[in-house]
Design a protein around this nucleic acid. Structure first.
Length: 699
RNA sequence: GCCGGUUUAGCUCAGAGGUAGAGCGAGGGUCUCAUAAUCCCUAGGCCGUGGGUUCGAGUCCCACAACCGGCACCA
């Protein structure tokens, strides 16, 4: 019975739909897909959710820039995501869009439920409260600028923040510190890997601040119930989609949906490490406030680096999944990512390594083994699977090492090792165990030499051993490489779908003698390295610069909108990187300003007279800068890119009419202009090619 | 600055007190069922540096360094 199966519900992050997904997002989704498929093959009824986060100011802006409506933009991007998941063979059962009616209802239901719980509490204890925020606010980044001396600059773009007064809804996160710490204590596997739990814990221990969960300044979002001037802000909206996915908020009362009750709480939220705080702190607190069950596990994986570098659009080294899938196939990418990337750590994505893996493990390994085994069965037994064992009188047993080899069946052990690895989410170990088994069959064949065996029953025993081990390997490999394994399955003469086979009930002897094998075809044709590489690169350039003659990236077309605060979809690499980098980087295409606004900024050429490090600050340098008529003390966050020594004597551009500000107890009277496009987001100071007098105005 | 991690063969990593391991790459050889595939042999690596504990230390302890995360700081 379908209903009697144990349930397993897992989610990917809800990806931010402001641009095309890169391999990083594909990685997260593939890993989840492997888990989903594996769990199904262990008898679970699996719900697997992904989706797109389609709200927020960045979408608004990107749409405006493209001259379309936000809805048109997200419709377009949502399709790209869906198409990619289809291409990658992702077995999702649910897809949530944050702009859907279902989701709006879910978010509103959740907040209503929380506020109902609140009503029994005195106002100062309520989880959700409306409060007036008075302070600095950056209109470009929609960010409240707090904890900075007045007048403050935006923490993202660095521009002066405006003084505003706005009423917003807040979530009383500060009240959940103890309960969260209790959660981490009693349920230490709530956050994995364990070192991430430590990081989360120390963050929570250091004190939590209430978070605002609505905005009046944004239009593109879900309206607050009974107060439609407000719109839900990022996390409350995005995180709730995990519940929308299984039906939360559907129907009149909204909460009694049977599907929701069956699948919630989620067994696993798979995320990238950059959004762990929101999942391991905010999300449980939101749910506690609503008195709903918490997800069982948050698993944060590392980032996928590209050729050892962080991916970023501005560097033009973002890798996409499509070119690989279209040249080497879906299985090649899936296999590579699971095999090569040690799960949890940052991993390296390299096309060359991918092709090497493809040839060595898929073509020469599994593909070739299937081919040689099946061919021999075809020739020797007219395509029928031979009987299982050699009779006791067989001469096989007396042949030195062959007797020993035959007596040792590696498959049961491999199954056990693989299963144990999977339970730890050690996917590379899982794959290794399967491929070790494959390699053992090749070794076995080299010893048994079926091609020179004359005795019919000996030959039967040998080839049965090979075919049956292949069958077991193929079952184990199916969650990772679903397409090829299904093909081999048919070539082995098996009917039905491989996904219906139980991994947890794998036993020797599943191949029935006499079964007619299918048509033999190579599942992984060998790839020429150079040729394949070129093909992939050409396609990638095309994706990076649609329409362009495959050359350098258009600098201005670069990352318009990926800054913002981290978003759920920032998982797994590039976007996250971009978000982090953009946090230090130039602002993301702001609204146009008039010349009169620009004229307010006074820029002058300065000469660095002295520079020194500041105790206890990694990035901050204290500089004395001559700007012609005076020498200013300026603090600049450029210590990651420059040593104090190399700065002295350099000419720099200084914003001279910026209000003074204290940092680390020292006053900073001005600001240096620098680009943040250096390697790893390190700052690069603005300089002049020609000599120029100190104090000159810059316009 | 605080907290955590890593540092082992060319590359990617495993090992966790008792004579240094795997895969890939490279070199040599074998077989011929197979996708110029398979199989076998070959790497002489101060196991980051310096101390210590021990009969004995990649393996435990202490310092230091480099790199990587998180926080702080900055943007």
């Amino acid at each position: 019975m379908e209903n009697s199966k144990p349930k397993y519900y897992l989610t990917t992050p809800i990806y931010y739909a402001n641009s095309r997904p890169h391999v990083g997002s594909a990685y997260t989704t593939i890993v989840c897909d492997v888990i989903a498929r594996y769990k199904r093959m262990c008898g679970y009824d699996v719900a697997y959710l992904t989706g797109t986060d389609e709200h927020g100011v960045n979408i608004e802006r990107a749409a405006e820039k493209a001259g379309i409506t936000p809805q048109e933009l997200v419709d377009k991007n949502e399709k790209i995501f869906r198409d990619l998941w289809k291409l990658l063979g992702i077995s999702i059962t649910d897809f949530v869009r944050t702009t859907s009616d279902d989701h709006a209802r879910a978010v509103q239901t959740l907040v209503r439920r929380t506020m109902e719980r609140d009503q029994h509490l005195p106002p100062e204890k309520r989880s959700i409260y409306k409060a007036k925020y008075e302070g600095r606010y950056c209109i470009y980044d929609n960010l409240y600028v707090t904890d900075t001396p007045e007048p403050a600059n935006c923490q993202i773009c660095g521009r002066p923040a405006e003084l505003i007064s706005e009423e917003n809804y807040f979530f009383k996160l500060s009240a959940y510190q103890d309960r969260l710490l209790e959660l981490y204590r009693t349920q230490p596997d709530f956050v994995q890997p364990d070192f991430r739990l430590n990081e989360v814990r120390s963050f929570v221990e250091s004190g939590l601040k209430d978070v605002s969960i609505s905005r009046k300044t944004i239009k593109w979002g879900i309206p607050w119930p009974d107060d439609p001037e407000h719109v839900f802000y990022v996390w409350y909206d995005a995180l709730t989609s995990y519940m929308t996915g299984v039906g939360y908020g559907e129907g009149a009362g909204g909460e009694a949906n049977p599907r929701f009750n069956e699948y919630w709480p989620a067994d696993l939220h798979m995320i990238g490490k950059e959004i762990i705080r929101f999942h391991a702190v905010y999300w449980p607190a939101f749910l506690m406030a609503a008195e709903l069950p918490l997800p069982k596990r948050i698993h944060a994986h590392g980032w996928l680096l590209f050729e050892s570098e962080k991916m970023s659009k501005s560097k033009g080294n973002v890798a996409y999944a499509e070119p690989i899938v279209k040249t080497l196939g879906n299985d090649a990418l899936r296999y590579y990512l699971l095999r090569e990337v040690v799960f949890g750590q940052d991993g390296n994505f390299s096309r060359e390594a991918l092709i090497t893996r493809y040839n060595a493990d898929l073509a020469n390994g599994l593909g070739n083994l299937a081919s040689r085994t099946l061919t021999m069965i075809e020739r020797s037994f007219q395509g029928a699977i031979p009987p299982i064992e050699a009779p006791p009188e067989s001469t096989l047993w007396s042949k030195d090492d062959l007797g020993v080899t035959l007596a040792k069946n590696h498959a049961p052990e491999a199954v056990q090792v693989a299963q144990a690895a999977f339970e730890r989410f050690d996917f590379s170990a899982y794959v290794s165990a399967v491929w070790q088994l494959i390699s053992q069959v090749d070794q076995f064949l080299a010893i048994a030499k079926p091609w020179s065996v004359k005795e019919q029953h000996d030959l039967q025993a040998i080839l049965y051993r090979a075919a049956e081990t292949l069958r077991i390997a193929v079952v184990l490999a199916h969650p990772v490489i679903p397409e090829a394994t299904q093909k081999i399955w048919q070539q082995l003469g098996q009917s039905g779908k491989l996904e219906d086979v139980r991994i947890d009930q794998l036993e020797w002897g599943g191949l029935k003698p006499g079964t007619k094998i299918g048509k033999i075809e190579a599942v992984f044709p060998r790839a020429d390295k150079k040729e394949t590489l070129e093909k992939i690169e050409t396609m990638e350039n095309e994706l990076r610069n649609p329409g362009a003659p495959a050359a350098e990236p258009k600098p201005s077309a670069a990352p318009t909108t990926e800054a913002d605060v981290p978003r759920p979809g920032g998982a797994a690499g590039a976007t996250a990187q971009a978000a982090a980098a953009a946090a230090t980087a130039a602002p993301a295409v702001p609204a146009k300003i008039g010349i009169e606004d620009f004229a307010k900024v006074e820029l002058r050429v300065g000469l660095v007279k002295s520079a020194e490090r500041i105790q206890g600050a990694d990035k901050l340098l204290k500089l004395l800068v001559d700007i012609g008529d005076e020498v200013r003390q300026v603090l600049a966050g450029i210590a990651m890119g420059y040593t104090p020594e190399e700065l002295v004597g350099r000419k720099v551009v200084v914003v001279t009419n910026l209000a003074p500000r204290k940092m680390r107890g020292l006053e900073s009277n001005g600001m240096l202009l620098a680009a943040s496009a250096g390697p790893d987001g390190k700052p690069i100071l603005c300089t002049f090619a020609e000599d120029i007098p100190v104090g000159s105005k810059v316009k």
